[in-house]
Design a protein around this nucleic acid. Structure first.
Lengths: 190, 190
DNA sequence: AGGAGGCGAGAACGGTCGTTCTCGCCCGAG
DNA sequence: CTCGGGCGAGAACGACCGTTCTCGCCTCCT
């Protein structure tokens, strides 16, 4: 038995490798043997911890969702205190994300496009991720005293910025979306 | 030789089948034999017209890009004459697209997420498609007398609406994006 | 009329993938 | 000391994929 965390540490290493590979190359393009090689674990243990590739994919998406949202919230929390400024800080965080060399768009959008039609687990992971992000923006928006519809508009801008930055391969869409967000947050400007 | 259009008609049928399958299930999930079966053509002819799957994918994306933009422009042209109204009509067209049962997001975003990391042809097809769409919005925006930055903002909204509609599986993001677009197009409102 | 070349149908080939099995080895219980 | 159960390493298996080849047949030039 594993009284210590050997099992969990192995699972984390596998998930680290799987995340790099799945996100960087696409899920179908990465074989289980590549995950094994990158995580330094044996194939037997890999299947003990994740009985099928589908399970591994699901765990990859779940962990990424939680870490992505936690990282965003942590950045926003220390970037600003006023809700309106926090909403704008979301786009600053996107800019930092987009500038990372490994950035390749939203993992959930990519997984949905690849497997959403055949895997219900992938489709609902993507739905959940986007719903949670929308709910986060909605909380900030009501705290800022802006109408609820504004939260939806900002979510569309962020979503568009992510996809556009991925395909254009540059990070300026974050700043562009922030400009638009500023307009949407100032209904009766000047 | 084919003096008549037999060859071209066969190619069209293959592309029709390939488009249904690639868009509906993802590119890697569809084998060449499935394309052959759906198009009623023989495997030999399929490879005569498209020497590799990569060629077929490229042709699929190219034809889809042109038809998508032509359909959009045709709708917008007959929906409104004033440039500002035409910009808003773009989102009405998106709503119609999203409501189609087979709608599964942007074919180029999906292909990019699946193959963009490994296929330069797919990556540049996606870049080209998005650049052309952005240029179209830029033309309408300058015709409407709005600042060029507004075109970029509207493109982000449209992009976000496409992805959000795909993942949520409903067509309301088009109307939500249209609301936001109206705000962005009325800088000094009321 | 005859033969050569193109066609349809599908088998075949080499490679890869997800998953499981084999086999020798170690380690701890009795 | 012994022996059984779990381990690492990798081979093996069945399925599938992209692509090519085989093999009759049909057809069109001369």
């Amino acid at each position: 038995m594993d009284h210590d965390g050997t099992r969990d540490r192995a699972a984390d290493g596998i998930l680290d490798a799987a995340e790099d590979l799945f996100y960087g190359q696409g899920i179908q393009a990465v074989g289980m043997d590549a995950v094994r090689a990158a995580s330094g674990v044996t194939l037997r243990r890999l299947y003990q911890l994740f009985p099928s590739k589908g399970d591994l994919v699901e765990a990859y998406l779940l962990r990424r969702d939680e870490r992505w949202r936690a990282d965003l919230a942590a950045y926003v929390d220390e970037a600003a205190v006023e809700p309106r400024e926090q909403l704008l800080a979301v786009f600053d965080w996107l800019a930092i994300w987009f500038a990372q060399p490994a950035f390749r768009g939203c993992a959930f959008v990519n997984a949905f496009g690849e497997l959403g039609a055949s895997s219900l687990a992938v489709a609902s992971a993507a739905r959940h991720h986007k719903a949670e992000f929308a709910a986060y923006l909605a909380r900030l928006t009501t705290a800022a005293g802006a109408p609820p519809a504004t939260a939806v508009h900002l979510a569309l801008l962020a979503e568009g910025a992510i996809t556009t930055a991925a395909i254009r391969g540059d990070s300026t869409p974050a700043a562009e979306a922030k400009e638009a967000a500023r307009v949407l947050l100032a209904p009766t400007a000047v």
